[in-house]
Design a protein around this nucleic acid. Structure first.
Length: 491
RNA sequence: CGGGGUAUAGCGCAGCCCGGUAGCGCGCGUCGUUCGGGACGACGAGGUCGUCGGUUCAAAUCCGGCUACCCCGACCA
C-alpha cells in the first residue's frame, strides 16, 4: 500500500488529517494556519459554489465585491461586533518595505506608517454598511439583496485543514430591508437555502435552530444555524444566518424614507457558509478506504479503468469506451477514462476509492467479448457485472441512488446518535460515553450553559426551530423549562 | 497564547544518547517480464540533514534563537 490511511477507530482526527492530504484536497502552507487548496479539493468547492450561487440568484440576490481592508475606525462602530472579533484580527500598519542597509534583506519602512491602520476583514458587515449608507435613501431602494464570495482572515490559535484555518473562503450575504418582519423572513429563508443545500447536495442531514446568547454572532440580534453530526459524534456548525436588527444601520446611520415620509433605520441580515463545508463533507461520509463523495459534488462521477495485457486489447477497449464516454457526457455525467499505462488496475481502484469517485467501471477483454462491464459503487463497495448496452441509464440511476444512499446512511447515523437526557447523571454519561446530539431541558440562562460547558465540554448547538413544546426541568438546575435544546460537543 | 512532541531525498522513517563527512522502504527514470484489487527483476538518478547563530581541528549529532507542523488546553465559523 502506497498510501496508508489511519483507521477511524484508531485515531479519528489523524484519519481526517491523512484523508484531506492523501485525497489531494489540501495541504498545509508555509504560512501559519493557512492552507493550500489543491485542484481536486478546489474542484469540489467550485461545485458547491456553483450550486449555492445559483440558489442565491434564484432567491433574488446579486453578487458584488467589497474591499479586503477595513479602516480600523469602522470596526469600532458596533460595540458587540468589535468585542467579538478584536482578538483575532490581522492589522496592516505599513505600506512599504525597504532594503535593510545594516543586516541585508528587507525591512518594513518606518516612514511608511499608515495614518489609519487597516484591519483585514474577518467579516464584512462594517465596510458594507458604511457603503450601504450611500445606496439606501428610500423604501424604493429596498430590499437590497447582496452576496459576496471572498476570503476572510481570523487569527486562530489552533487550526485544522478546512475546519478552522486563519484564512478561509466563504460567501457572505448582506441584506437590507424596510421592516423587521421582512428581515427575519430573509434570515429564515437563507437558513432554508443552506439546509436544502446541505441535505440535497452534500447529503448531510442538518438541524435548523436558533443560537443561545453565548453562541450568537457578535452584533446580531439572533443567530440561526444548521448543525450537522460528524461520524465521531461531534457536532459541526455548518452555516449561519443572522438577524441583525437595526444594529448596523444605527452604527452606520443607514436610514430610508418610508412610504409615509417618515425616516427609519433599515433592518438587516447576514449569512454565510465557508470552506468549512469541505470538512463537513469529508467527516460525514468517508470511510477507512478514503473519501466518499455525493455524486452531485464529485468532480469525477464515473471513472473507467481499462484492463488489458496487450496494446491491441487497450485499443479495442478504448474504441468501445469512447462512445460510452460521449454518451455519459451527453447526460451531463462527468467521466474520466484512465488509460494511464504506468499504473496497474489494482492501484487505480485503490486510488479512486481514496478520492471518493462514486462509480467505477472496469472493462477488460472478457467484457469486450461478453458485451459487459464491471460496475462498482464507492459508498457500499459493491460490484456487479452488467451489459454494456444500456449501461448509461443504469449509471444515471445508480448515481441518484448513491446520492440518496449516503444521505440515508448519514440520517440513520444521526438518528441513532440523537438521545434524550432527563437527569444530570444521564446527560454526563451520554456526552462522555456516547457523544452525539443530546436533547435536554435547560433553564435558559447563560450561567447554566457555561457551567454545563465547563463540566462536560458540551455546548448548546441550537434551539431547534421544529421542536416539541413540553414542560420539564433543567437537567443542571432543576428549574422549569418549556422545551428541550440540542446539546453536543462541537468542533 | 500556555504545556508536550516533531523537522534528515518527492513521501514515510533510521542515524543523534557516545561528534569523524548520510542510510532504509516507498515513489521517480531506463529496460524486460506483467496487468480482472495497491506487480516483479536488473540498473540508475536524487539530500548544503527546517533556518540562523554558537562550541569544536571536525556538527545531522552538542548548545542557543527563530520558523513551521502535530497532540493536549484556553478562544472561535
Amino acid at each position: 500500500m502506497a498510501k496508508e490511511l489511519t483507521q477511524r477507530s484508531e485515531n479519528y482526527s489523524q484519519w481526517y488529517q491523512d484523508l484531506v492530504i492523501k485525497a489531494d484536497l489540501a495541504e498545509n502552507s508555509a504560512v501559519r494556519g493557512c492552507m493550500v487548496i489543491k485542484p481536486y479539493g478546489y474542484a469540489i468547492w467550485e461545485k458547491m459554489q456553483a450550486e449555492l450561487d445559483r440558489m442565491f440568484k434564484e432567491t433574488g440576490h446579486q453578487n458584488a465585491y467589497f474591499p479586503l481592508f477595513i479602516p480600523k475606525s469602522f470596526f469600532s462602530r458596533e460595540a458587540d461586533h468589535v468585542e467579538g472579533f478584536a482578538k483575532e484580527c490581522a492589522v496592516v500598519t505599513h505600506y512599504r518595505l525597504k532594503n535593510d542597509e545594516q543586516n541585508g534583506g528587507i525591512v518594513v519602512d518606518p516612514d511608511a506608517k499608515l495614518e489609519e491602520e487597516l484591519i483585514i476583514r474577518p467579516t464584512s458587515e462594517t465596510i458594507i454598511w458604511n457603503t450601504y449608507r450611500n445606496w439606501i435613501h428610500s423604501h424604493r431602494d429596498l430590499p437590497l439583496l447582496i452576496n459576496q464570495w471572498a476570503n476572510v482572515v481570523r487569527w486562530e490559535m489552533r487550526t485544522r485543514l478546512f475546519l478552522r484555518t486563519a484564512e478561509f473562503l466563504w460567501q457572505e450575504g448582506h441584506t437590507a430591508h424596510a421592516t423587521r418582519e421582512e428581515a427575519i423572513e430573509e434570515t429564515i429563508k437563507m437558513l432554508g437555502v443552506y439546509s436544502d443545500f446541505a441535505e440535497n447536495f452534500m447529503a448531510i442531514p442538518v438541524i435548523k435552530g436558533v443560537k443561545t446568547e453565548n453562541e450568537r454572532f457578535a452584533g446580531a440580534v439572533d443567530t440561526y444555524s444548521i448543525e450537522a453530526l460528524m461520524q465521531d459524534g461531534k457536532a459541526l456548525q455548518s452555516g449561519t444566518s443572522h438577524f441583525l436588527g437595526q444594529n448596523f444601520a444605527k452604527a452606520f446611520d443607514v436610514k430610508f424614507t418610508g412610504k409615509e415620509g417618515r425616516e427609519e433605520y433599515v433592518w438587516s441580515t447576514s449569512w454565510g457558509v465557508s470552506t468549512r463545508l469541505m470538512g463537513a463533507l469529508v467527516m460525514a461520509h468517508s470511510d477507512d478506504n478514503g473519501l466518499v463523495l455525493p455524486p452531485k459534488l464529485a468532480p469525477i462521477q464515473v471513472v473507467i479503468v481499462p484492463i488489458y495485457k496487450k496494446t491491441e486489447q487497450l485499443e479495442k477497449i478504448s474504441e468501445r469506451v469512447s462512445s460510452l464516454v460521449s454518451d455519459l457526457k451527453a447526460k451531463g455525467i462527468s467521466v474520466k477514462f484512465d488509460d494511464n499505462d504506468n499504473k496497474k488496475p489494482g492501484w487505480k481502484f485503490a486510488e479512486y476509492e481514496l478520492k471518493g469517485v462514486p462509480v467505477r467501471l472496469a472493462i477488460g477483454p472478457r467484457d469486450i467479448e461478453n458485451g459487459t462491464v464491471e460496475i462498482s459503487r464507492r459508498d457500499t463497495l459493491q460490484k456487479e457485472i452488467i451489459p454494456i448496452d444500456g449501461c448509461v441509464e443504469y449509471i444515471e440511476n445508480l448515481l441518484t441512488e448513491i446520492q440518496k444512499g449516503i444521505y440515508r446512511k448519514a440520517l440513520d447515523f444521526r438518528t441513532e446518535n440523537t438521545r434524550s437526557a432527563d437527569s444530570w447523571d444521564e446527560f454526563k454519561d451520554l456526552i462522555q460515553n456516547k457523544g452525539g446530539f443530546v436533547l435536554a431541558h435547560w433553564d435558559g440562562t447563560s450561567e447554566t450553559e457555561n457551567k454545563i460547558k465547563e463540566e462536560t465540554k458540551a455546548t448548546i448547538r441550537c434551539i431547534p426551530l421544529v421542536n416539541i413544546q413540553e414542560q420539564g426541568k433543567c437537567i443542571y438546575t432543576g428549574k422549569p423549562s418549556k422545551q428541550r435544546v440540542l446539546f453536543a460537543v462541537a468542533y
